[in-house]
Computed example of a mutant assay.
Amino acid sequence: MRLGPSLAALTVTAAQGGYALGLILLVPLGDLVERRRLAVSLYAATAVFLLVPATAANGTVLLVGTALTGLTAVGAQVVVPIAVTLAAPGERGRVVGTVMTGLLLGALLARTAFGVLSALGGWRTVYWVNAALMALVAVLLRVFLPRLGGDGARLSYPGLLRSTVAMLRYEPLLRWRAGIAALSMASFNVLWTALTFLLVRSPYGWSESAIGLFALVGAAGALTASVAGRPADRGHVQMVTGGTCGSALTSVVWTHGGWTSVCVLGAACSAGTIALWTLERIIVARAAGRPPRLTAHQREEPARAAAPGRASGVRPGR
């Protein structure tokens, strides 16, 4: 089964689209159910879904299997809050940095492993090996993770999803950080999605294993995540703050404009990330210099508190 550049990029988009749905629909379940069981279930499901692309006979099955795999691959995002819960308050930044270093290194070095495995046994070998590794991780989590119960058991699942949307609505900082993260991930995917297309064609003509080794260049950046967590523990989180749409746009831009247009797209995503971060810092700084805005009820509260009989709980005239 051979895939053209557009369909190949679409598989990346399918994986990340499924991953995005998993973040929205599955990760919040950590507030409802026991978290070790959730993490183990997600890793086990990922191992099963990886068998679908491993045995795919056509591009449609490959896309469906990739999307399902992405949906349950959010198990790592359940493990991160578990690590935060188990860490001491003064060490949480370092612990999260260490865990994120593992995640980023895995994302980058997976390309190296993909190249080596593809060269040795074909592209399906990647999925078979990955399925075995996910099953192994599920077993290790089941053995070594302590039980951690969700603290929102009184919520229904629809209510949980509504509360997630409400957080995005009422927390401006969360919206800013979501935008920054989306653009950062888009710029990351623009590079790594198009890079394979560039290196496989003339004048480079690299093999799959050689292209995989190119991912080692990005490993140095991933290692900084563990270092970045330490200033966060000391209250300097802004010093270390830096999608799916990235890989989807890459396939379109590559087809119509080539590598130069891809570079422009990546630069635009990176510039957007910097612009959003700068605007967020300006707005937060201005808000810190203003007195808090009080509602009418809050403005009337001091007057009611000073009324006769309020302190003793006795109403006037009685």
Score class of each variant (00 low, 15 high):
residue 146 P to S: 10
residue 184 S to D: 11
residue 247 S to L: 09
residue 213 L to C: 02
residue 262 V to I: 10
residue 312 S to F: 05
residue 97 G to W: 02
residue 280 E to S: 15
residue 6 S to V: 12
residue 160 L to F: 04
residue 221 G to V: 04
residue 290 R to S: 13
residue 275 A to P: 09
residue 71 L to F: 15
residue 232 A to Q: 06
residue 78 V to S: 12
residue 242 G to A: 11
residue 311 A to K: 13
residue 35 R to G: 00
residue 51 L to Y: 05
residue 151 D to K: 09
residue 187 S to G: 03
residue 63 L to C: 00
residue 227 V to T: 08
residue 298 Q to G: 08
residue 241 T to C: 08
residue 65 G to Q: 06
residue 167 M to Q: 10
residue 152 G to H: 02
residue 51 L to P: 06
residue 205 G to Y: 09
residue 277 W to E: 13
residue 31 D to P: 03
residue 1 M to L: 07
residue 216 L to D: 02
residue 285 A to R: 15
residue 145 L to H: 00
residue 77 Q to D: 14
residue 244 T to E: 11
residue 96 V to C: 06
residue 272 G to R: 08
residue 211 I to W: 11
residue 264 V to Q: 09
residue 264 V to G: 04
residue 216 L to G: 05
residue 57 A to C: 07
residue 285 A to P: 11
residue 255 T to L: 08
residue 206 W to E: 01
residue 151 D to E: 14
residue 273 T to C: 14
residue 310 R to C: 12
residue 156 S to K: 02
residue 181 A to N: 13
residue 90 G to T: 11
residue 312 S to R: 14
residue 115 G to V: 12
residue 162 R to D: 03
residue 228 A to V: 09
residue 216 L to H: 03
residue 246 G to E: 01
residue 91 E to Q: 13
residue 172 P to F: 00
residue 9 A to L: 05
residue 263 C to E: 03
residue 208 E to D: 10
residue 194 A to R: 10
residue 54 A to W: 13
residue 259 W to A: 14
residue 32 L to E: 02
residue 73 A to M: 10
residue 114 F to W: 14
residue 263 C to F: 01
residue 313 G to M: 04
residue 130 N to C: 15
residue 46 T to C: 12
residue 16 Q to K: 00
residue 72 T to S: 11
residue 11 T to M: 15
